[in-house]
């Protein structure tokens, strides 16, 4: 399938916060109450449309156990976006956010867009972290924030797509050098600079994304 851009995402956060479930909801539109453990890394992909351009998201879903961080660090390389997930029903997963953020900032490129996600918003009765706390944390660290539920699919779509929009805007502003793949952005095959019909970045929208899916 053709696409204008490919963005690499990485999903990080403590074990059991619902990273794999978020991914499954986003890619397959379904929820698995008991998901397999993730060992190492798993992959997901989906095509989205922004500004009438086809954008392919390549998502790396990582293992959450703290001990594995030495391994997951290597996955940050080349990521354009990161979803940093905590579980609103387990305070400790919120408390660990700073270390995750330090890790992410240290091992990724500085332009990486980070979206903070408080997952399991459907479990209101078991909530341990207030929404305001999440918002405050995001404001303080310059992140985008959203509460989601992988179970009800609330905000899941938005979380992934808004991140992509931010990345896309950064491309438009020329912040991302799209020719450097280390930034986690690839130009789609038919959009490569050798093809003069379409400009790489900052192109005028409305090219109707040459081939539809």
């Amino acid at each position: 399938m053709s696409y204008a851009y490919l963005f690499k995402y990485i999903i990080i956060g403590d074990t059991g916060v619902g990273k794999s479930c978020l991914l499954l909801q986003f890619t397959d539109k379904r929820f698995q109450p008991v998901h397999d453990l993730t060992i190492g890394v798993e992959f997901g992909a989906r095509m989205i449309t922004i500004d009438s351009k086809q954008i392919k998201l390549q998502i790396w879903d990582t293992a959450g156990q703290e001990a594995f961080r030495s391994i997951t660090r290597s996955y940050y390389r080349g990521a354009a976006g990161a979803l940093l997930v905590y579980d609103i029903t387990r305070r400790e997963t919120f408390n660990h956010l700073t270390t995750w953020l330090d890790d992410a900032r240290q091992h990724s490129n500085s332009n990486m867009v980070i979206m903070l996600i408080g997952n399991k918003s459907d479990l209101e009765s078991r909530r341990e972290v207030k929404k305001e706390e999440g918002e405050a944390f995001a404001r303080e660290h310059g992140l985008v924030f959203m509460e989601t539920s992988a179970k009800t699919a609330a905000n899941v779509e938005e979380a992934f797509i808004n991140t992509a929009k931010e990345i896309y805007e950064k491309i438009q502003e020329g912040v991302f050098d799209i020719n450097n793949e280390a930034n986690g952005i690839k130009i789609g095959p038919q959009h490569s600079p050798t093809n003069p019909s379409l400009p790489g970045a900052g192109g005028v929208g409305g090219s109707q994304g040459s081939a539809c899916c």
């Binding site: 074990t15 059991g16 698995q32 008991v34 998901h35 397999d36 453990l37 156990q65 001990a67």
Partner: peptide, 24 residues
């Protein structure tokens, strides 16, 4: 000492062979 990792175990038990149902 990695003894604190013991707390994580509980979360993972039911996520082990979830389809089999006997570890949940």
């Amino acid at each position: 000492d990695q003894e604190s990792s013991m707390d994580v175990i509980e979360l993972d038990i039911s996520r082990t062979f979830p389809n089999l149902g006997i570890f949940q």
